[in-house]
């Protein structure tokens, strides 16, 4: 494994907007580092300043104070042209171009390197082809952009960012508006990219579950004390995640390192058995306000057997259910 490097170092950064002499600070005291060869996910509520932070890191918005060092040098010392070869972006703004093929669009990613008329050389073409095959979109290459689905378009935009050959890729909510399989696909592709190409990938997202499972590092952006960052696992251990998303109805399951919805229980029941069926019965019961586990002693016991789900009361068989649906129906009576 390559030694990772801190590509973007942020110190005491304050972000926001300044209109004339009035500064509107959106977030401050941000200090952290983004590493190469890793996928970092930025998490936080709506309106907390995720997009503002991304826009500041891209150089679209001037920072209000503090330091942003990219590859060791302050961001403001780079020219726009130079920055274009260091950072590429995938934004939330929707393209409204008609009559342009996917390949032409990805080719535009070469703009910082092309000449006066923007024509692609053989070398540029190869880079575009590589970007296309890395994103596995060879079948889309000749399609018109306006005919693509949201998920396909997102992959094309990432390919454009790849063609730009910048070591850093910043993505603003790349998985928003996608269906679940596409979300997973995009996240996995990005993660693979960070490994294969040693690029620094930084994205904001609301897909908490996915981020916790796929990201190498997460940044939590809260109302106070700037940003906390670390691997999802470390963040689970030191309870940062717990505190961060602590809210009624959501609990952090420290065993799995994932979130689940909290149910209010009004009954407890003993559940005997093991395996997937055990877990599923337990899940179904919990949704219906019944806490079920091996440790509980109750009048009624549910036993998972080879044949079916056997329900006992004081050691006598009440009934046998063959599906969870049936079990729930009979239990409720």
């Amino acid at each position: 494994m390559k030694r990772k490097q801190g590509v973007i170092e942020i110190k005491n950064l304050a972000i926001g907007y300044s209109v004339k002499k009035n500064k509107k600070i959106i977030a401050e005291q941000i200090s952290s580092t983004i590493f190469s060869g890793e996928m970092t996910c930025l998490l936080g509520e709506n309106g907390i300043g995720k997009s503002t932070l991304l826009r500041t890191l891209t150089g679209f918005l001037p920072k209000l104070s503090g330091e942003i060092r990219i590859k060791g040098k302050e961001i403001t010392t780079y020219s726009e042209k130079k920055l274009a070869t260091l950072i590429s972006v995938v934004l939330t703004e929707k393209l409204e171009i008609k009559n342009m093929t996917v390949k032409e669009l990805i080719g535009l990613g070469r703009s910082p390197y092309t000449g006066f008329w923007g024509s692609l050389t053989k070398g540029d073409e190869t880079i575009v082809e590589n970007a296309i095959s890395l994103m596995k979109i060879n079948n889309l290459a000749q399609r018109m952009i306006h005919t693509l689905s949201d998920g396909e378009r997102q992959k094309v935009m990432i390919a454009k960012a790849l063609a730009q050959e910048a070591p850093i890729i910043l993505l603003d909510e790349p998985t928003a508006f996608l269906d679940f399989p596409s979300k997973v696909e995009i996240m996995q592709l990005l993660h693979q990219l960070s490994r294969k190409t040693d690029k620094t990938i930084f994205l904001s997202t609301h897909d908490l579950e996915l981020a916790l499972q796929i990201a190498d590092r997460i940044w939590l952006m809260g109302h106070e004390n700037g940003i906390r960052s670390g691997t999802p696992e470390d963040m689970a251990l030191d309870k940062s995640l717990n505190n961060f998303f602590a809210r009624k109805g959501i609990i952090f399951d420290s065993d799995t390192g994932l979130f689940r919805i909290e149910n209010e229980y009004d009954k407890q029941i003993q559940l005997i058995g093991h395996g997937q069926k055990y877990a599923m019965v337990r899940k179904a019961l919990s949704r219906n306000g019944i806490m079920a586990s091996r440790q509980i002693n109750s009048e009624i016991q549910i036993e998972i057997t080879e044949g079916g789900i056997v329900v006992n009361q004081f050691g006598k068989i009440l009934f046998v259910a063959f599906s969870i649906d049936e079990l729930l129906e009979k239990l409720m009576l």
Binding site: T58, F60, E80, A84, V89, L91, G109, S111, W117
Partner: peptide
């Protein structure tokens, strides 16, 4: 201005990111 116009098709954000003032 041909190259400039081509970049402008992408919208402000992307055009800026590709080095256009």
């Amino acid at each position: 201005l041909i190259k400039t116009l081509n970049l402008m098709l992408l919208g402000e954000g992307y055009a800026r990111n590709l080095g256009l003032n």
